[in-house]
Amino acid sequence: MRLTFLGATHEVTGSCFYLEACGKHILIDCGMEQGRDTFENQELPIPAAGVDAVLLTHAHIDHSGKLPMLYQQGFRGEIHATGATSALCDIMLRDSAHIQMAEAEWRNRKGKRSGEKAYVPLYDMEDALSTIRMFVSHEYNEKFELFEGIEVRFTDVGHLLGSASIEIWVTENGVSKKIVFSGDIGNINQPLINDPQYIKEADYVVMEATYGDRNHEPPPDYVSELAKVIQETLDRGGNLVIPSFAIGRTQVLLYFIRQIKEEGLIKGHDNFKVYIDSPMAIEATNIYEKNIFGYFDKEAMDLIEAGINPIKFPGLKTAITSDESKAINFDDEPKIIISAAGMCDAGRIRHHLKHNLWREDSTILFVGHQAEGSLGRII
């Protein structure tokens, strides 16, 4: 057994590990680097066609974003993940391909005037769609034989719907070893999804450490803090604009806002409107609703058994087309606008910032990490 670290060793994005065992070549994650590119990922030491399988911890692009490029370069094996991860990658990889193609079109249009060499995207939509068809879904805690001498199990780690640590048992030449890839481990007591399920033994552990360089304070009362901001903004007659990541963070916000509405924590603004202005976030929310059993925690399941959808409520509106997005700013009523991208570097959020940043009665509320160099961090 031999393990090579290809990405996310000096930085926290671009996760990719290469495992050689039992004559097979396996990748654990195949992520895209995001934000400032301080350290270049190592090249895969074999042709992509030589990779036998990929094991995927979760759907975020810094763990899955280069899978279509791997396909484009010749990979034709299976991609193993949980069912929810497979479903989320369907939208994540299509969206990533769209971004790649749009950036190439913009660069080539701009570069044509100066005679620059044509820019080729990392991959296109056909590569993404072909990659999506290669996914094989598994349940949590289902131990399966990947290849002779190699067994695998996905364990819930509460980071994102479907996220997992991956346990791998390798038996070679009569010797058995267990290696664990932690993936991104979530915090406890998060809404909707289960708390991390801990793995108690392994011979080797490859640990992600995105937030391992800081002490974590007890979390605030998110519901009361959010309700306070909503109340103050609506009282001023302004809009509460929230740049939010389409998958994970948006659904948590909907969960909190549903609770705020249900408990009547906002006074004087009955049935205030909440817009989700992100086609990707809307698709992701639909996937959350279809992947309840085995993924949602007890609190969320109790609501569902009582006939309550934990992420839907009166006053929730969606904007899919660009015309629907633009129309939001012609609605004079005070409202909440949840829009992607979470770091404000692209997407419809920039449109809403343009219409609201200058308004003294409006609020821009950041609910996620803003990487160095991002527009969100600058604001």
Rank of each mutant, 00 (worst) to 15 (best):
L3R: 08
A8S: 06
A8I: 02
T9Y: 09
E11K: 07
G14F: 06
S15P: 00
S15E: 08
C16R: 15
Y18F: 15
L19C: 02
G35S: 09
T38N: 11
F39G: 03
E43F: 08
P47F: 13
G50P: 05
D52R: 09
H58S: 00
A59W: 01
G65W: 04
G65S: 02
P68V: 14
Y71G: 13
Q72E: 15
G77K: 04
E78C: 02
H80D: 04
S86K: 10
A87P: 11
R94S: 11
S96N: 12
A97L: 07
A97Y: 08
I99Y: 07
I99H: 08
M101Y: 01
N108R: 12
K110N: 15
G115T: 12
K117I: 15
A118R: 15
P121C: 10
P121D: 06
P121E: 12
D124S: 12
D127F: 14
A128W: 06
L129P: 09
S130G: 14
R133A: 08
M134N: 08
F135E: 04
E139C: 11
Y140A: 02
E145L: 07
E151N: 13
E151D: 15
R153H: 01
V157G: 00
G158N: 02
H159V: 00
H159Y: 06
G162C: 05
A164N: 03
E167Y: 00
V170G: 05
K177V: 10
I179S: 00
F181H: 00
S182D: 01
G183F: 00
D184G: 00
N189Y: 12
P191D: 05
I193Y: 02
D195A: 12
Q197L: 01
D203Y: 00
D213I: 09
R214W: 06
E217V: 10
P218N: 04
P218S: 06
L226H: 14
A227D: 10
E232G: 09
G237A: 05
G238S: 12
I242P: 10
P243K: 06
P243H: 07
P243D: 09
F245K: 04
A246V: 05
I247N: 05
T250D: 11
Q251E: 14
E263Q: 14
K267T: 14
P279C: 07
M280D: 04
N291C: 15
N291H: 15
I292S: 13
G294R: 11
M301K: 14
D302K: 12
D302F: 09
A306R: 06
P314G: 00
G315V: 03
I320Y: 15
S322Y: 01
E324G: 10
A327Q: 10
I328W: 04
K335E: 12
A341E: 08
C344Y: 11
C344M: 14
R348Y: 01
N356Q: 08
W358V: 02
W358D: 09
D361N: 05
H369V: 05
S374L: 05
